[in-house]
Design a protein around this nucleic acid. Structure first.
Lengths: 268, 268
DNA sequence: CGTCCACTTGATGGGCATCAACCGAAGTGG
DNA sequence: CCACTTCGGTTGATGCCCATCAAGTGGACG
């Protein structure tokens, strides 16, 4: 799927962004659609008082982006905050010499933006096609001062992200390539399966499209894309994962993956 | 310095904890001492409205801990929040198989505690002798609901910590042992020098005691203590750092260290 | 059908872990 | 006061995991 081709994809009849029969266009006001929003119960707005929530909906509008789009260059002023309705965003740090590390992944219902700083030190980039619920920067910051519950909701999310980041620091520092790979696949499976789109309840085996290229997975894990490729093969040959094409992953047993990620050896 | 011996040390005439002539004892009320507090302009309380600040001072009390003391076991209920008056705290994740990674470092004026969660997934441990300004858990949480400015102050700090954690993720994933070592020493130098105790303004070269053992530094960097030892020797032989004893570090040129940390090669 | 690009697979080597021995300072007990 | 122990740290020898370099594969697309 090329970056240019994905905008049209969003307007298919079977909407991949989970807005039911709605087909939002860039700039559309959210206000009257919040009631249909599928992430309403999980996103930032779910934690707000009802006046705060409706004030937020007043300033919200949808925006679409194709895969690969840079949402926010590092050290540049952002013009909006957002909640991810669907799609995946990576936060990347790149050095002049080309070394690169993905330092954050944001999935459906996650918050995008860095309050209280002129800019972020990291580049935000869409790894899949994206639907965002955006809030203009200054409007959002006004609400932040007006409604303490909004600050509390952001604080809760920031602390959760901090915990996740620290867990990932362990993975980067102390796990082997095999374990890193299993950790990442497990994390992706949890986030994508939980989003409700890729998994129907009666399915025992999980199946979904990887939102990342091999190189992006390597950049998550502090590895090379060659090593990622080799480890995927190894996992496939051991029956821990299955693949269909390059992007589709089949997980017959999430538990095996989790054990491998935790550091235990597979008894085969 | 043994763990048992350091409590007495805190009561020397030249107080290492920066409370001037005061010699606080465990349980002492802070209220009347806030005006003398040396971190008053940098800690959490500096960002609060004056009613919030005085409410906070009402519930504060000092507490001392020796080096090596576990402040908070992972997955256990904490009984207080705190601000570090002096000393260094590490946040550690340990696996049953013994693998260990330090996922956070807290220095003077940093906040300790994990609001909105029953417990933290990480163990908090003093790496040096410690003076904390503690707030009983439930009292502090009441203030959190009462004063939005307290939530905002915590949010700002959480976001800063998140940025730091992400920067460190790059170090763990993409830097060499040499660069990791330089990054850590640079980070420590910045935090300890900024605290104002180890550095007088007219000094061109910085000198301070490392708050970590070789093993702890290795646990920060995802290395072994042998590699840390070797890299320190290498840095010493190249003149980037100097050492006196095992714990005292002399940095004649902070810039060289920063360049090494950034990934540039030393032109020697 | 040719080109492109993500990905795969193989060969080789280096950076860092691992294992092991040694050192020196601090504590301990006779 | 001195042997003995302990423990953090240093240094060396060896090996392995994963990076690097290189070539090949297959699907997408013009």
């Amino acid at each position: 799927m090329g970056a240019a081709g994905s905008l049209e994809m969003e307007n298919r009849t079977t909407d991949p962004h989970g807005m039911r029969s709605l087909r939002p266009n860039a700039g559309m006001r959210t206000r009257r659609y919040c009631e249909h929003c599928q992430i309403r119960d999980r996103a930032l707005c779910s934690a707000l008082s009802s006046p705060a929530a409706s004030a937020l909906s007043e300033i919200a509008h949808f925006k679409q982006f194709p895969a690969g789009q840079v949402l926010q260059q590092s050290h540049q002023d952002p013009s909006w905050y957002a909640v991810i309705v669907s799609g995946v965003v990576k936060l990347v740090k790149t050095l002049p010499d080309g070394r690169q590390q993905i330092v954050g992944l944001q999935f459906t219902a996650d918050f995008l933006g860095r309050p209280f700083a002129a800019s972020s030190a990291f580049r935000a980039e869409a790894t899949t096609s994206l639907l965002l619920c955006c809030f203009p920067k200054s409007d959002f910051e006004s609400l932040l001062h007006e409604y303490p519950c909004l600050e509390e909701a952001l604080l809760r999310r920031a602390l959760d992200q901090l915990d996740s980041a620290r867990e990932w620091m362990f993975t980067l520092g102390r796990r082997t390539a095999r374990e890193k790979m299993a950790s990442l696949l497990f994390l992706i499976a949890e986030r994508l399966a939980r989003s409700g789109r890729e998994r129907t309840p009666e399915e025992t085996q999980i199946e979904f499209d990887l939102p990342f290229s091999r190189t992006e997975m390597a950049d998550c894990l502090g590895l090379t894309h060659e090593t990622v490729s080799r480890e995927l093969r190894e996992l496939r040959e051991r029956g821990v994962i299955g693949t269909r094409g390059r992007r589709t992953l089949v997980l017959p047993q999430l538990g095996a993956l989790e054990r491998l990620a935790g550091g235990e050896q597979l008894e085969v």
